[in-house]
Computed example of a mutant assay.
Amino acid sequence: MSINGKTYMSDASMPVKKRLLELVDELIAHDGFGSIRVDIRLLKRGQKEVIIDCGKQYRFVVDFQPAAELVDSK
């Protein structure tokens, strides 16, 4: 979805956002050091693989619509 020239993910990305926020909360509460790394790769058929690395790896595949397609559909 595109609003005011910015591209936003669909509801399919909500599990990714939820896990990321949970991990940030855990790291802030942790009594030591921590880090989070997020890698995003384009896949075929309008999908992206999102890998959240925070000691463990959490992998998600989410659907997306490229920005060029959003402009053409209006």
Rank of each mutant, 00 (worst) to 15 (best):
M1F: 04
K44M: 06
Y58L: 15
V16C: 04
I51Y: 06
V71R: 09
D63L: 06
I52A: 01
T7W: 05
S73E: 11
D11Q: 10
M1L: 04
L21N: 13
K44D: 13
V62R: 11
M9I: 03
T7G: 06
V24S: 12
D31H: 03
M9C: 07
R37H: 08
V24M: 14
D63Q: 13
E69A: 07
I3T: 00
R19D: 02
L70K: 00
N4C: 03
F60Q: 10
A68L: 06
Q57V: 12
P66A: 05
E22C: 00
V50C: 09
Q57L: 10
L27T: 02
K17L: 13
K48S: 15
G5F: 10
A67R: 10
S13A: 14
E26R: 13
D53M: 11
R41G: 15
H30V: 02
L21V: 09
E69P: 00
L20P: 02
E69V: 01
F33K: 00
Q47K: 14
V24L: 14
S35K: 12
V24G: 06
K18N: 15
V71G: 00
F60H: 14
V62Y: 05
E26Q: 09
P15Q: 13
V16M: 03
A12I: 05
F64L: 01
D53C: 11
H30G: 00
H30Y: 00
V50Y: 08
L42G: 09
V38A: 06
M1P: 01
R41F: 13
D11G: 09
M1T: 01
I3H: 02
V61W: 04
M9G: 02
Q57I: 11
E26K: 11
R37V: 14
G55I: 10
S10E: 00
Y8F: 15
Q65S: 03
D11T: 03
V71Q: 12
G34R: 02
E49N: 07
D53R: 12
Q57C: 09
A68K: 11
T7R: 06
F33S: 05
A67V: 01
V62W: 06
S2P: 00
N4M: 05
H30M: 01
K17W: 11
L42R: 11
N4H: 01
L42S: 10
R45S: 10
D39P: 06
F60I: 13
G46R: 14
R37L: 12
V16L: 02
L43V: 07
F64G: 02
H30T: 01
F60P: 02
R59M: 14
S73N: 03
D72F: 02
V16I: 06
A67M: 08
M14P: 07
L43T: 11
M9D: 03
A29D: 13
M14C: 08
V38F: 02
V38Q: 08
G34C: 09
G55H: 08
S2M: 14
Q57W: 07
L42M: 07
D53Y: 09
L43R: 12
